[in-house]
């Protein structure tokens, strides 16, 4: 199997060449495999967004290379093909919605691909169905909740039928219910539609639902592995300025109080099961 996205020794500096040059990426290696759900996490300014913007050609590598299905992102001729393969959803839904009707907004991407009207309609329908948004198709996004707006933004990317969707802190603006809705839908797109998901997030309870995770610090990847493997390295996680998931924190606390709780607990359900068996 070939990786969907392959990053080889990528570096990137903002204001390159000037006095206040800032090295945002310092030699990143990463492989993203088809069908996986990958979390990229790390403190503010660690370079997550800068890295992710190389995956669909919004930024081009200053050195090193990024390949999407073997196509080099540095070659401008590949940009259109790569944007079709890799969609991107941003943090603030208000800044990414184009039209004043939901279905027209979702059609924007497929329209840019130059598809025939009937095909566009089919895809809009499919995207609305997949995210359970049919009842909102004719309304104006400005009247929706932030969570619903974000789902519309995701539908707009989905309608382009990408193999991979990058989501840059998609839940940062949302209330708990919106967060849950968006996360559940992202997980469903991954499990049921087989879409590769790259989720940039600060929330560890979102990270635990991913297959793989990457922790960045100061433009470098510090850790990579399954959430179980990564969260086992508690000290390093804390040192990198991150938290453990709530369940892991509780498990650690309980263990210190002498309860017999096994290692490797990151999901709330696991902790609950474990506590029930203690009796």
């Amino acid at each position: 199997m070939n990786p969907l996205i392959e990053v080889i020794d990528l570096t990137y500096s903002y204001q390159a060449g000037s006095d206040d040059e800032f090295r945002a990426l310092k030699g990143v290696f990463l492989q993203v495999w088809p069908g996986e759900m990958l979390a990229i996490t790390g403190q503010n300014g660690s370079g997550k967004s800068t890295l992710a913007r190389h995956f669909n050609g919004l930024l081009t590598p200053q050195s090193g290379s990024v390949l999407v299905e073997g196509l080099s992102i540095a070659d401008k001729k590949n940009t259109a093909a790569i944007r079709k393969l890799v969609g991107m959803v941003f943090q603030n839904p208000d800044n990414q919605l184009v039209s004043s009707i939901v279905e027209e907004d979702i059609a924007f991407g497929p329209e840019n691909l130059g598809l025939p009207p009937a095909e566009i309609r089919k895809r809009v329908d499919w995207a609305l169905d997949t995210l359970n948004l049919q009842h909102l198709r004719k309304v104006s996004p400005s009247g929706l909740s932030e969570g619903q707006k974000q789902l519309v933004a995701i539908a707009g990317v989905l309608a382009m039928k990408p193999k991979c969707i990058i989501l840059d802190e998609p839940t940062a603006h949302l209330d708990p219910r919106g967060k849950r809705e968006v996360l559940e839908n992202i997980m469903r797109l991954n499990r049921e539609e087989g879409i590769t998901i790259i989720l940039l997030t600060h929330f560890m309870n979102e990270v635990v639902h991913c297959d793989q995770m990457v922790v960045m610090e100061q433009g470098e990847i510090k850790l990579r592995g399954t959430p179980y493997a990564v969260f086992r390295q508690k000290e390093i996680i804390l040192e990198l300025g991150l938290d453990l998931p709530i369940a892991a924190q509780l498990a650690t606390g309980l263990r210190q109080k002498g309860f017999k709780i096994p290692e490797d607990i990151i999901h709330t359900e696991e902790l609950v099961d474990c506590l029930c068996q203690l009796k």
Partner: peptide, 26 residues
């Protein structure tokens, strides 16, 4: 800043200036 984000988001959705664009609603 927000308008710039809007333009980046449009670009990420394959918008390249209207050339080759088709319409859902004729």
């Amino acid at each position: 800043k927000r308008a710039e984000e809007l333009i980046v988001a449009m670009e990420a959705r394959s918008y390249t200036g209207g050339k080759g664009r088709t319409k859902m609603k004729t």
